[in-house]
Design a protein around this nucleic acid. Structure first.
Lengths: 218, 218
DNA sequence: GGATGTGAATGCATTCACAGCA
DNA sequence: TGCTGTGAATGCATTCACATCC
């Protein structure tokens, strides 16, 4: 594998990278200095070979006979994921979920900073929610430019979500995390991830009904 | 493929099943009576062959020359996912995220009913949050038995989550949706799904940094 | 001895392409 | 003609197993 061609990395490997990082940070907090692929894998229910191959897609970070230096690997994985720099993030939707997202701690520790909150309801605009003043969608472009925001979270009702997504993309947003229960359409060059509570629960429902088709954690 | 051996269904197919259902329900609301695999696939960015194969893992639901009858297919997919019956669900954690989950609508419409909320903070127990009275974890088993609850959502801080998970499993819970940012360990026979906001954002960060390694929606 | 990194082998999932039915 | 369901072919991802290095 050639680390100069990151586009050839299996997608599941990138998803696991985040889990490795989370686990490594926990190990570091416990004072752990080095860790083997076997131990890291075990803590996540993965094989040692899987861990080694995933990491090797991006470079040679380990030391034969020793394992991986925890601090080192944390720094490397952050660099790969792009979270060694701070990302400014905006949120659209100041409803129940939006408020939960506003008060989510341990967001900053991961390299993300929520810097602006928008809502389409004029009666909310200008009001304060915790440390945030709700802004009007008319100011989208200006705020995005001012804070150099590239990532956005959408926490609005399903029937408003596509319109919001369009406006965000139009205003220069490059990545979207969608919490509304529908499939958004965005241009190919915009990254899109989705979290749908009902979908998650349906998966549980299926798994509990079908004791045979056991699945690993997503 | 033999529908009498559902354990041999690819996991990704099951995840897509939920998306098909969501899309089908939207088509039904718009008055659509039948739909082809091509149309259903297009609405989700999938190929027609993918849609047909996924559905065929579970039976023969389509009509050559016609497509799928929307209402029919909705009923079938709900049956497969197990959401043709109501699932009683409990929540542990009445913090910011917990409150957002309590007030999440469109939960009932999907076949899930939140029937109890727990918190380990004694000062919260007995207090009302919307329609819910926060209960003590000491009453876990009793409440689970009384309402025949099999699914639970965990929305507590990371350092409390494993203990909560253990107690839920011990008390008879069969499926867990974990919102805490750590990897829970549960017995093999317990279904586990996880939603980690930071992980989602890290994936966006990676994708936006790497314009070549484009991914489809999760 | 204890660990990594990695080709080769295996196993899964997706896509192709077409027979068959309405 | 229009569409499904499905074997066969392809393409991805995981696992194996071992040369290599501390």
């Amino acid at each position: 594998m050639d680390p100069t061609r990151p586009e050839s990395v299996p997608n599941p490997a990138v998803r696991r990278l985040s889990l490795y990082l989370r686990q490594l940070e926990a190990f570091a907090r416990k004072g752990r200095r080095t860790i083997s692929s076997k131990q890291l894998g075990q803590s996540l229910g993965l094989t040692d070979a899987q861990v080694r191959k995933d990491l090797a897609y991006f470079g040679q970070f380990g030391h034969p006979g020793i394992g991986y230096r925890v601090d080192d690997l944390i720094a490397q994985v952050r660099r790969i994921l792009g979270t060694d720099k701070i990302w400014n993030v905006l949120l659209v939707g100041a409803g129940n979920l939006g408020r939960a997202l506003m008060s989510y701690k341990g967001f900053d520790a991961k390299g993300f900073r929520l810097v602006a909150v928008f809502d389409s309801d004029p009666s909310k605009v200008g009001k304060k929610q915790g440390p945030f003043v709700i802004e009007s969608l008319n100011d989208l472009r200006e705020v995005i430019d001012r804070h150099a925001i590239r990532l956005a979270m959408i926490a609005v009702p399903a029937d408003a979500a596509q319109d919001i997504a369009d406006r965000l993309v139009e205003a220069g947003i490059r990545g979207l995390l969608n919490f509304a229960p529908l499939s958004l359409k965005v241009p190919e060059e915009v990254a899109l991830n989705a979290v749908d509570l009902a979908v998650q629960m349906e998966q549980l429902s299926f798994q509990v009904n079908m004791p045979l088709g056991q699945t690993k954690e997503t």
